[in-house]
């Protein structure tokens, strides 16, 4: 889809007006804000901002006498507006703005607890009365209800205050729970799972933790200096692998969708993917999760370990 088609969905005039009606009150609330800071706040480039400021100097009200224009100007890289009573505050939230915000807020439910409910309640009150029905209607049209573990909220707080946390972590690679003491750096949701990126004190390195696998979380009083998180990524199992897994024709389209070119064509509509065999346990459980539509071709040792895992499940006692 081209950028042109995208803009066809909503005329640029709409976007510009919205921005300008925010810009004037914002500058009057933050007189002397730098051009760069203002551009950042509006998520536009410096050049775009200067163009907007140019346009604003031409805005006025009939009969367009000198005093009838918005007096906004840049002086030594700083932006000022002569107090403009008309545009002292931005317009209220539109129905679409409120609906998009409410939908995004769902990402943190139920971790956000009461704060989310009360925030949405207050939000609804500042939507213009005539837009409320439409807000309700639009709220029904979007649902970003990601499963959010309860630990999310204390972790967000610990990251913000740079406080170390402790928890018991269940590592599915090893199948055991162990106590950890970490400096929490960043939270992110990947394929619907929440991960914590943190500096592990005992291991002296940054590690990834699945938030739904940690228990008995305590936020300690120990603070730590600001650190730049490396924007951790969940490893792609097909990134560097030596274990060849074959996927039947039935699941091949989904595997191709997930792994792209790393899924190589094999006979009978099947595909092969080379994955990491670093964790035997992970490999066996991953192959098992395809319920017989995936199997290891090589190496022999990996085949044996999947076979053993399946046998172990069959023999597990009730």
């Amino acid at each position: 889809m081209s950028a042109k088609e995208k803009s066809a969905a909503r005329p640029p005039v709409h976007e510009r007006l919205r921005r300008l009606l925010f810009l004037v009150p914002y500058v009057s609330r933050h007189p002397g804000i730098t051009v760069d800071a203002l551009a950042r706040e509006l998520s536009i480039s410096r050049e775009e901002l200067l163009e907007e400021l140019d346009l604003l100097t031409m805005v006025g009200r009939p009969p367009f006498q000198p005093d009838d224009y918005i007096d906004i100007y840049v002086e030594n890289e700083r932006v000022y507006v002569d107090l403009d009573q008309r545009l002292s505050a931005p317009p209220r939230l539109t129905a679409s703005e409120a609906a998009a915000l409410a939908a995004a807020a769902e990402l943190l439910r139920p971790a956000a607890g009461g704060a989310l409910e009360s925030a949405l309640h207050k939000l609804e009150k500042v939507i213009p009365p005539q837009a409320r029905a439409r807000f309700k209607e639009m709220q029904q049209k979007i649902d970003a209800g990601v499963v959010a573990p309860y630990e999310l909220q204390p972790l967000v707080g610990a990251i913000a205050q740079r406080r170390e946390v402790e928890f018991d972590y269940f590592s599915s690679n090893r199948g055991v729970s162990e106590p950890r003491s970490v400096r929490p750096l960043e939270l992110f949701s990947h394929r619907g799972q929440w991960y914590l990126s943190a500096f592990d004190n005992a291991r002296g390195d940054e590690r990834l933790f699945r938030v739904d696998r940690l228990q008995n979380l305590t936020v300690t009083d120990r603070t730590f200096p600001p650190a730049q998180a490396r924007s951790a990524r969940v490893p792609n199992p097909a990134a560097h692998g030596d274990v060849r897994v074959r996927f039947s024709k039935v699941v091949a389209p989904y595997v191709r969708e997930r792994f792209g070119d790393d899924a190589r064509p094999a006979p009978d509509g099947a595909v092969d993917v080379l994955v990491s065999g670093e964790s035997e346990r992970w490999l066996a459980q991953w192959v098992l999760s395809f319920g017989g539509e995936a199997w290891v071709l090589e190496p022999e040792s990996a085949r044996r370990s999947v076979e053993r895992a399946a046998q172990a499940s069959l023999e597990s006692k009730a």
Binding site: R10, E15, R18, F22, Y26, E41, L42, S43, P90, R92, L93, T94, S96, E97, A98, A99, A100, L101, A103, A104, A105, E106, L107, L108, A112, A115, L116, S118, A119, K122, L123, I142, A144, V156, A160, F188, S189
Partner: peptide, 30 residues
């Protein structure tokens, strides 16, 4: 409350694809 809305809103925007992303950005500013 502000932190919840900001956290969720900016996470959604950071994903690079959220319906009404521009609406969301304006709502956060407001």
């Amino acid at each position: 409350e502000l932190a919840v809305l900001y956290t969720a809103g900016s996470a959604a925007l950071a994903s690079g694809a959220f319906p009404g992303a521009q609406d969301l950005a304006h709502a956060l500013r407001k």
